[in-house]
Design a protein around this nucleic acid. Structure first.
Lengths: 203, 203
DNA sequence: TCAGATTTGGACCGATCGGTACAGACCCGC
DNA sequence: GCGGGTCTGTACCGATCGGTCCAAATCTGA
């Protein structure tokens, strides 16, 4: 691996936390220097396109994680011909465990969702769209493999992703002791119940 | 009414749209001038505390609307001794209709939720907390008046508010044709079903 | 009409912004 | 050791930022 790429990849997690905390506009290069130890020269060496390129790299980084830890396992559970893998119910459970861990029970913002709410949305529309589309499609696929009808699987998947996003918002308020766990736990139960009712929820 | 207050109140809707579109950090005084027609002198005359005071005024403005159109009707439906008013089921239906209209089927950001996700949260924590707490409490109260047990009513109310917030996030992506309506419609159905099952869902 | 109150425009301020440029420092393989 | 490639620090730039200030314009009630 080229050294620029290696060094660049190493700063992406810190960059991601900055964008989560301050948003696109509120994140300055001074913040980046403080969080990464990189001076201006280095920042522009790694990200010649500047702030836009940093945000895009961070979104790709987040997307890669989700692809490996959430989307691909769901899609694999939805692909019955692919060989031994977790069944739909286990995949759903794993998904909720992964996102609970990644979002730190809601204390850590979903960067893609936060960008969707602001004016950075336009600059990164295709990435944002693809992330949610992929998530919902992979989850729907796993639900269908568990016997749920396609339309209902789409609706349940869409709702589950919305619930997770909304649970993060609620978790960011002080009245929110355990809100993330309660809300996502309820949604997980709903998905598992639907799989059980469809009768093919093998583990 | 004093003229400063009148003029000041008149610019709050435009200010709110700015903060929704650009967020706290991305909203500049140049934006404010362009959107309101006010020059610097006028802006500081109306909001001597500057940007913080503008954001706080806008949050209050949003909160006032929700109090009148959403929270108070829910609370009234929950207060059986208060005289004639809509029953719990009708109040729930009205709530969904109001938020669908207000959030323009998800095309308009919930400013309180968006602030909750960013670093403006700390400055406005008590307002943000109070908004969500009030919403959930009022909805829970209406559900309880419809016969739903307190714990379950709390959970359903919390989930409903999370779903609405998450539906807004999803509605902001291009794959989102009708997503807001589908997701909130599903949640409304769930609340109405729970009220029916509790047997006191009088209109 | 007039005086006092209120509102306004915009000059000015210091600070910060993202970005450019590049010489010097550093790294690495031959 | 050397040369080429990569990385770094920082001076510099024009632009923009939020806020201060105040004279002029406007409003209002007597």
């Amino acid at each position: 691996m080229a050294r620029t790429t290696a060094r660049r990849d190493q700063v992406l997690p810190a960059l991601a936390e900055l964008f989560r905390e301050h948003g696109y506009h509120g994140t300055s290069l001074a913040h980046v220097t403080a969080a990464t130890g990189l001076g201006k020269g280095s920042i522009y060496n790694f990200f010649p396109g500047g702030k836009d390129e940093m945000a895009a790299a961070v979104l790709s980084h987040v997307d890669d994680w989700f692809e490996r830890q959430v989307f691909a396992p769901l899609a694999a559970a939805g692909d019955l011909a692919a060989g031994p893998q977790a069944g739909p119910a286990a995949a759903v459970e794993d998904m909720f465990a992964s996102v609970t861990d990644y979002f730190r029970s809601g204390q850590r913002v979903c960067l893609v969702g936060a960008f969707a709410l602001g004016d950075a949305r336009d600059a990164f529309a295709s990435r944002i769209d693809a992330y949610f589309a992929r998530w919902i499609a992979a989850l729907s696929r796993a639900l269908q493999a568990g016997g749920i009808a396609p339309g209902m699987a789409d609706d349940l998947a869409e709702e589950a992703v919305a619930v997770i996003q909304g649970a993060i918002v609620l978790a960011r308020t002080n009245r929110s002791d355990g809100a993330f766990a309660r809300v996502t736990g309820g949604q997980k139960r709903r998905l598992l119940d639907a799989l059980k009712a469809a009768g093919r929820a093998s583990a």
